[in-house]
Amino acid sequence: MSTTKKLRLGPLPKLASTKLTFVCPVSLKADLDRYAALHAQAYGEAVDAEKLIPHMLEAFMAGDRGFSKNERVTRPLTRPASVDAPAR
């Protein structure tokens, strides 16, 4: 029986990716490493902090109401091609 509670991030999906490099404080890197260790303990799969960061950022942005509201306003609605195609 695991004593670790489920973490907010959950198991990681397999996604296509691109490399991005950023600089962070040493204390943040230490926190990310500790979170990665807890994540591995909770889900039984070793993962490093670098793999967690994109999922953390995605979760953060999904939960940011100001960003979500702005996305709805600035991103045009897309319709299926059949709706936009002229009738023949």
Rank of each mutant, 00 (worst) to 15 (best):
M1T: 06
M1D: 07
S2I: 13
S2Q: 12
S2T: 13
T4Q: 15
K6I: 10
L7A: 10
L7S: 01
L7Y: 05
R8T: 02
R8N: 09
L9G: 06
L9K: 03
G10N: 14
L12A: 09
L12C: 11
P13C: 09
A16N: 12
K19C: 03
K19I: 09
L20R: 02
L20G: 00
T21I: 03
T21C: 05
V23W: 12
P25C: 04
P25Y: 01
L28R: 03
L28P: 01
K29D: 13
K29A: 15
K29P: 01
A30R: 14
A30S: 13
L32E: 04
D33I: 05
Y35E: 01
A36G: 06
A36M: 01
H39D: 03
H39K: 08
A40C: 06
A40V: 13
A40K: 07
Q41N: 10
G44P: 10
V47R: 10
V47A: 12
V47E: 04
D48H: 06
A49F: 11
E50N: 15
K51N: 03
K51Y: 06
I53N: 00
I53A: 04
I53T: 11
I53F: 14
I53H: 09
I53G: 03
H55E: 01
H55R: 12
H55W: 00
M56A: 07
M56T: 01
M56W: 05
L57F: 10
L57Y: 02
E58V: 15
E58A: 14
A59C: 02
A59N: 14
A59D: 15
M61L: 14
M61R: 04
A62K: 12
A62F: 08
G63Q: 02
G63E: 08
G63L: 03
D64W: 13
D64R: 06
G66Y: 04
F67K: 03
F67H: 11
F67E: 00
F67A: 01
K69N: 11
K69M: 11
N70V: 07
T74N: 12
T74Q: 09
R75I: 12
R75H: 12
P76Y: 02
L77K: 15
R79W: 05
A81T: 12
S82R: 02
S82Q: 10
S82Y: 11
V83Y: 09
V83C: 00
A85F: 01
A85L: 11
P86A: 05
P86K: 00
P86D: 04
A87S: 10
R88N: 06
